[in-house]
Structures are given as structure tokens and as C-alpha cells.
Design a binder for these strands. Structure first.
Lengths: 137, 137
DNA sequence: TTACCGATTACGAATTTCGTAACTCGGCTT
DNA sequence: AAGCCGAGTTACGAAATTCGTAATCGGTAA
């Protein structure tokens, strides 16, 4: 995992369809090298998979969740990641413990998720932020 | 957004490098049709981007940014989205105005980003949270 | 120096993507 | 009904990309 790997990953994260030839030109190496390295990164599991980010709903939001101190946040995260419309579940440092990133059809669907989180016994509080605009890096 | 679109999306979610020809064979249509539909889905914004899911020793973090009231957050977001290691820039409701989601090599790279944000004239304050664990929904 | 090994490069072949024109098939008009 | 339109689909040659593989390079140990 050197600087070249990181530059390749950076390009692929922005657009995973970028041809090896174009990546090679951008980072100053050959197509074969890019190909070898990407293959190695996949083998090593650094690249988990090539995928697409979709926006099927109209509304994205972050739901920040605080859980009781004696609770295993892994279990709660696991559970919440199964909920509909949930894109990511992050365990974070800071005031709150878990952040849900959700992509829902409307405010009602977001509210359902908040309600469901609040109804969970281990959840102490939630704080929701609507994502008003998203820009890709 | 019909059943064919959804099947194509499912395949791409699983492996975004699947050739159109292979998708076409799997869903029982032609390469051109898959190409047209994927292009349309991208245009419509249903497919936000082609990307990679990485499972690295990398450090992910949220950097929450508050900007001065008289500042156009669009401009600031635009600028920050160009910074290296920045995955998303969200304009959000709530106490802070902008959230950067970053995926950097180490704490130093994260710190560089925080520093850069704080050095920006329009930025009033920042609050950083490390993402300790990420789960896909 | 020499041998060796992994990484890189080079290059022709196979595959995929791309541009575009023809075709199909409802729905609509006359 | 006949004719027409338009979106979606299909067909196909050309361009671009990926792939397989062999040669080359660069560093290192003996």
C-alpha cells in the first residue's frame, strides 16, 4: 500500500469506470501496472468490491443515535443496518455513538426510522439532520 | 424504473464491472439496451456514481464544519469536495452547516484536512468524529 | 559480479464499448 | 384501417480497453 496504490484508489473511488489506461496516464505509469495493482488490491481485500452508489429516494438524512453505556454498540449497529432505507451504519467517536445514513422516499419514511430507533430499549436519544445537498468528492 | 432497470441495478451493485454484454445475457436483452438504460439511470441520478467499497486500514472520519452566516455554503462545499481523501460533502440542517466524510491514510492526513478547513476564512469551527466501524445497509 | 525475484513494461489478441442506423411495436391521427 | 410517430430495442462495424504473456528493469543477497 504505497502512494501509487492510494492514488489509484482515489481515482477509482471517484469513478470506478475510469479505464486503466487513463489511470495510468494520470499517475504516470503503464496500463499493465495499474492492472496488476488493482488486481492485487482486490486480492488483498483492500478493494472490497466495485459497486454503484444509488439515490433511489428523495430524501437523505443522518440520524445520530446515543445508546446506553452498558450496551454493545456492535449489536445495535448490526440490527439497524438491516432496516429498510439505511445506507450505512457508522459507529463514531464523539457525543453520539452511532450514525445512520439513510436514503428514504419522503419525510415520513425518515420519521418512521427515527421512531423505530427511539423505540429501541438501548437507545437513549436521537438527533436528526437532513442532508440538504450532497457533493461527491 | 421498471423491473429490467432494477435487475440491472442489482447486478451492478454486486459488481459494477460486469460488462454490458454479460448483463444483457443475464437479463435477456441486448448490449445496446443495457447501455442505454444504464446511461439513462445515470442521467436521472438513480445511479449516483460507480465507485469502490474499500476495507482498508484507512481512517474514516466525519468533519463537521460551521461557516459564517454570510457565506454561500455551496461555494464552500464545492471547494472542499475537490480536496484529496474527501468522499462526500453534505450540506446539512442542524447546528453545523457542512459535513465532510473523509477516508484518509492515517490520522495525519485527517488532521491535514481539519487544518485546511480551519484555515479557510469562512469556516468558524470544526468538530471531528472518527468513524470506528462502518456497516453497509 | 552474478543470480534471483518481484514489479514494470511492451505488444498482439480477445473482448468490450461506442456510434449509428435500422427495426419494432404501441398509440395516435386522419 | 392505413399511415405515422416516437421511444425503446437491436444490429453491426469501428474504436477503445482489457487481457495474456514474454521481455525488461531494479534492487538485493551471496
Amino acid at each position: 500500500m504505497d502512494e501509487l496504490d492510494r492514488r489509484i484508489l482515489d481515482i477509482l473511488r471517484r469513478d470506478a469506470r475510469t479505464p486503466n489506461t487513463e489511470i495510468a496516464a494520470e499517475v504516470g505509469t503503464s496500463e499493465g501496472t495499474v492492472r496488476n495493482r488493482v488486481e492485487r488490491l482486490v486480492d488483498e481485500g483492500v478493494i472490497e468490491r466495485f459497486t454503484i452508489a444509488t439515490r433511489t429516494g428523495n430524501l437523505k438524512a443522518m440520524i445520530e443515535v446515543t445508546v446506553a453505556v452498558d450496551v454493545d454498540t456492535n449489536d445495535v449497529s448490526e440490527l439497524m443496518s438491516e432496516w429498510k432505507d439505511v445506507d450505512f451504519v457508522w459507529q463514531v467517536s464523539g457525543e453520539e455513538d452511532i450514525v445512520l445514513v439513510v436514503d428514504a422516499a419522503d419525510t415520513r419514511a425518515v420519521n418512521d426510522l427515527i421512531t423505530r430507533a427511539r423505540e429501541h430499549d438501548d437507545v437513549k436519544s436521537t438527533k436528526t439532520r437532513l442532508i440538504l445537498d450532497e457533493r461527491l468528492g
